[in-house]
Design a protein around this nucleic acid. Structure first.
Lengths: 199, 199
DNA sequence: ACCTGAACACCGTTCAAGT
DNA sequence: ACCTGAACACCGTTCAAGT
């Protein structure tokens, strides 16, 4: 909280990530400024370069923090489900909840990373892929379906709904609806679809 | 092509939109620079401000060009369909095609516009909404369903698939697939779902 | 009416120097 | 080992002035 006098608070890296997230929430990822962040944390504009190679890597690190929270939410959804079908539905619900509750993280998690790898994000998706396979094994999802095709369909539907709700797309189109109802529609769509068939 | 000598090519506004789109395709929307665009077109950095109030409005204008192409593609899909059910499927297909064939436009069409209104985009969506209502009337879509709920579900699914394919999200997750197959999966999902039920 | 030239505050990034 | 101070090229934007 209160910074040390001449030299600085023991962990500049953590401070940059914490305040960086706050700045992201205020300004959006386009207007996110590294110099402003440095001023805010109380260091010179060159200081962040001791901890991150450039602006993109710093934003990636913030996104990784988001993926950790996101991954934990998906794991918790699976753990709290009564069966394998409910686990898949729980993941869809957790996905939509995360997008609105952690909009700043979400806005930055699906940026184009170019050459930079994204291990944290890829690890998160494993939870989703595993839940699909498990639901196929238990018969809640069609066992004869290609699990990768199921992954694409489910991920696309829930991701599109999350993006459109979090970025105001539904509002813009006059399709806005309370969050709970949207969740029910999206989850319900897959619940009742024989192509995906959560039973 | 060749610019006039002292004073400039009759239509700077059109040149900015045309070269702006090319620059967008090269650099991405984050790194899109107004000064670089001005140099490229061969005018001073102040010149674009005679035609657009600021950088955001110029990008919005490029996005509007995209919406026109997008809207025409949706209309053509409806016109070329054999019945109202095929029209909805055709729109989904045209949506996915547009996202990959016009990735630069697509990347900028769903930015947060803040206070700036988006009439062109809203108009485009009407084609989609009309196709849904028509398919309900003809019995290709469930007539008892809320058309706005159908709009949300279909839009979310196809938009998510488009975003994930165009931004490399599927590739990142090891879920990449040829474009034609993805199209068939997404359209097929809705074709066979009783919740949405394209018959 | 449409564009230039020059300026302003700001940005990302680098690097020699300080402790 | 970690940070500062000062600099560089660049950016978005403004405005008086030119034709």
């Amino acid at each position: 909280m209160a910074q040390k006098d001449g030299y600085h608070h023991g962990d500049l890296r953590a401070a940059l990530l914490r305040e960086g997230h706050a700045l992201l929430a205020e300004r959006g990822s386009d207007a996110f400024s590294l110099n402003e962040l440095a001023r805010r944390v109380g260091v010179s504009t060159a200081a962040p370069y001791r901890h991150f190679p450039d602006r993109d890597h710093l934003i990636d690190a913030i996104a990784d923090d988001g993926y950790v929270i996101f991954g934990d939410a998906l794991i918790a959804a699976v753990a709290g489900a009564s069966d394998e079908g409910a686990a898949v539905c729980g993941i869809l619900l957790a996905y939509l909840d995360f997008a609105v509750e952690h909009a700043a993280y979400f806005s930055v998690m699906f940026r184009d990373r170019g050459e930079r790898p994204n291990e944290v994000g890829a690890g998160t998706f494993m939870t989703f892929a595993d839940a699909i396979v498990a639901a196929q094994a238990s018969g809640h999802l069609d066992p004869s379906a290609d699990p990768r095709a199921l992954g694409r369909a489910l991920w696309a539907g829930v991701h599109g709904a999350a993006v459109l709700e979090a970025s105001g797309g539904f509002v813009k189109l006059g399709l806005d609806v309370p969050h709970e109802q949207l969740v029910e529609e999206i989850v319900g769509l897959y619940l009742r679809s024989p192509a995906v068939a959560v039973r």
